[in-house]
Amino acid sequence: MVQGKISSKISQLSYSIYGRETSGFKERLYVYVSLIKDLTKGVLRVLNGKFRLRNCKSTGKLITVRGPLRVEGSGDIRIGDHCTIWSHMGVTQLFADRGAELIIGEGTFINTACIVSASNRIVIGKNCQIANQVIIMDGDFHGVDDREAPGKSDAIIIGDNAWLATRSMILKGVEIGEGATVAAGSVVTKNVAPYTLVGGVPAKLIRNLEVPKQK
């Protein structure tokens, strides 16, 4: 099984570099060196993840973190297996206040310079795609009229396989359905139905998306 995965990776690298299978010693050597570099990067990112996420309540297997991820707060942060978090071109921040929960499902990808801030509860489903500079924030931190007064907060739930495009913002009390897509730059203040595309400020329905056939 492992040998098959390595062979598949070598084939992918060959087509990525040369557009075909390798031929000749020099080409094969270059592909093998590239493979070793990729494997080394992967190991270092897993180790970086273990270090950056060391204070989380629970973390899954093979979480890879690229760059200086920032994790703060005394709340519960739980991250599932095989998640990928990038923080190399802009610092990604995960925050859970005291008594709050931040749960990230397995296989989810979070790109650079994102802010995920839980004052109440944020649940991100499995295999979600969160693009760079997305903000997910379930609380106001302070009032509008009285800025010394505490702000309101309400849970955010993001379903499996959702895609939040660049610089979108998800605000308190919102539920985003499975397979939904939020267009770039949108501000989501109301629930989003499963398998729909929304966009704008505030975000509104653009169209329905095709529901994938069950395997």
Rank of each mutant, 00 (worst) to 15 (best):
R20F: 02
V198H: 08
Q133V: 04
G42S: 15
F95T: 08
I85T: 01
G179I: 04
I136V: 15
G19L: 01
I104V: 08
G90K: 03
C114N: 01
A203R: 03
K41F: 12
L62G: 00
R167H: 13
L197Y: 03
G4Y: 11
K37Y: 11
H82L: 02
S58W: 00
T108H: 08
K126E: 12
F25Y: 11
S87T: 06
I77C: 08
F95Q: 00
G200R: 09
S186D: 07
I170N: 10
E27G: 03
K41L: 13
A162F: 10
A149C: 03
V174Y: 10
Y18A: 01
E106N: 09
E72K: 14
A113P: 02
V187E: 07
Y32W: 01
P150A: 09
T84K: 08
S16C: 01
K37Q: 13
S23L: 12
M1F: 05
S119V: 02
L44P: 01
S11F: 00
S168V: 03
K9F: 06
N191M: 03
K9V: 02
L205C: 08
A180G: 04
K204A: 10
A193S: 15
F109W: 12
N55D: 12
I158L: 10
T166H: 13
Y195C: 05
H88K: 11
M169L: 09
I130R: 07
S14M: 00
S87A: 07
I115C: 06
L13R: 04
K41D: 14
H88T: 10
L164H: 10
D97L: 00
R147T: 13
S74P: 03
V71M: 09
K213C: 06
V31I: 15
V144A: 09
S23M: 09
M89K: 08
V91K: 11
I63T: 05
D154P: 01
S153L: 03
G80T: 04
S34H: 06
K215T: 14
H142P: 09
K26Y: 09
S8M: 02
V187G: 12
